[in-house]
Amino acid sequence: MNNIVVKDSNGTPLKDGDSVILTKDLKVKGTSESIKRGTLIKSIRLTAKPGEIECSTKKVKGLVLKTEFLKKA
């Protein structure tokens, strides 16, 4: 198993299944949707890249977000 530590914008370690909050409004590429600052995202999944997580919201499924725009809930 890899020992990559994924951290949020405050340096708090994240793990699979955590909930995070957006710290910035983000436009979703390929759609007209945007996700507002303060949105709670539940059940994140870590990826092979330490700066990214996978998640889904009510509006958009299969998102990949950069951890620099997230903080642990």
Rank of each mutant, 00 (worst) to 15 (best):
F69A: 04
N10T: 10
E68H: 15
R37F: 08
I44E: 09
S43T: 15
G17D: 04
S56Q: 03
G51K: 14
D18P: 03
K61S: 10
I21Y: 11
S34P: 09
K7W: 03
G11A: 04
K72V: 14
K58N: 14
T47Y: 05
T39K: 10
R45V: 04
I44G: 04
V64K: 12
E33W: 05
M1R: 06
E52L: 14
G11N: 06
V28D: 06
L63Q: 08
L26I: 13
T57P: 12
L14Q: 05
K58S: 06
G38L: 11
S56F: 11
D16C: 06
D16A: 05
D8F: 01
E33L: 11
V60F: 00
A73C: 11
K59A: 14
S56D: 01
K7N: 06
T57V: 10
G38F: 12
S43A: 15
K72P: 02
K61M: 09
L70S: 07
D8A: 01
I41E: 02
L46G: 02
K15V: 02
E68A: 15
D8R: 03
T12F: 11
T31D: 02
K58A: 11
I35E: 08
F69Q: 13
G62F: 00
K49F: 14
K27I: 13
S43F: 12
A48Y: 01
N3V: 11
A48V: 14
S43K: 14
S19R: 10
G38C: 11
M1D: 11
A73H: 13
L40Q: 15
L22A: 03
K36E: 15
T67R: 05
G62N: 13
I44C: 02
G38T: 09
I4F: 03
E68L: 15
D18N: 02
G11S: 03
P50N: 02
L40H: 12
G38Q: 10
P13R: 00
K58H: 09
A48S: 08
S32I: 04
L65C: 00
A48E: 03
S32V: 09
